[in-house]
């Protein structure tokens, strides 16, 4: 095995090949490279940072154990992302949550939660709470299947087709979930969005 001096400079393919030969340093660089995205994604699906952290750990352990069978001609991160999504849904299923929502087919159906949370009622003045903070809180209150679909679109920048593939659902469902997620977000943020338009 040839010695690599700077793992940070290596591309994914090189790192995969080295990790497949048992090079821990190469694997370490893979973890460094993708852990933040994986923790963020898992935390969003699970609705908890701690759970996101724990599941992301399991994801990378699984990556290490299965790296030998990974086809190095393919992109690494989509594989890791898929493992992450599956691990989260598996955990939610174990906890008795999220199964029905991951298997749903809400083409034009009403969202399961459509009552804005009390916390987001316009009691507080706009300048007290940053809009981004409110948006994050609104995102947290979305049903998990809307939240994850919107996250994959906005943060992971996936096309509807790629989202469909990642979540094992059809493109129509992806589209309707994203529409519904945005509608819910807009409704919950109505007050704040109106305030930002008013001249101060």
């Amino acid at each position: 095995m040839y010695k690599v001096k700077n793992y940070k400079e290596q591309d994914d393919i090189t790192l995969i090949k080295l990790a497949q030969k048992g090079d821990e340093k190469a694997f370490e660089e893979i973890v460094n490279r993708y852990s933040n995205r994986v923790i963020n994604l898992a935390a969003r699906i699970m609705g908890s940072r701690d759970d996101g952290w724990d599941i992301a750990q399991e994801v990378f352990i699984s990556v290490w154990r299965n790296i030998k069978s990974f086809d190095s001609t393919k992109n690494l991160y989509p594989w890791i992302r898929k493992i992450t999504v599956n691990a989260c849904y598996e955990e939610l299923r174990k906890r008795g949550k999220g199964l029905e929502s991951s298997l749903d087919d809400v083409e034009d159906g009403e969202p399961s939660i459509d009552v804005p949370d009390e916390k987001y009622s316009p009691e507080d003045t706009f300048d007290k709470i940053e809009l981004n903070e409110v948006i994050e809180k609104a995102l947290e209150t979305l049903p998990e299947h809307y939240r994850v679909t919107l996250w994959l679109r906005v943060i992971e920048n996936l096309t509807y087709e790629e989202i469909a593939e990642t979540l094992n659902i059809n493109i129509g469902t992806v589209k309707s979930r994203i529409n519904m997620a945005r509608k819910l977000m807009r409704d919950r943020l109505k007050y704040y969005l109106e305030v930002k338009d008013e001249p101060s």
Binding site: E24, F27, E28, V31, N32, S35, N36, I39, N40, A43, R49, W53, A56, Q57, F60, I61, W64, L131, N132, V134, I135, E136, L139, L150, W151, V154, I155, R182, M185, R186, L189, L193, K196
Partner: peptide, 29 residues
């Protein structure tokens, strides 16, 4: 409004302590 919501979602992306995270993963393998 829609673009603002997307922007807010992007802003909610966090930076975790990946050094600790990586060290924990390596210890477990």
């Amino acid at each position: 409004d829609l673009l603002l919501i997307d922007q807010g979602i992007r802003a909610s992306y966090q930076e975790f302590d990946t050094q600790t995270f990586t060290a924990e993963v390596l210890e477990r393998i």
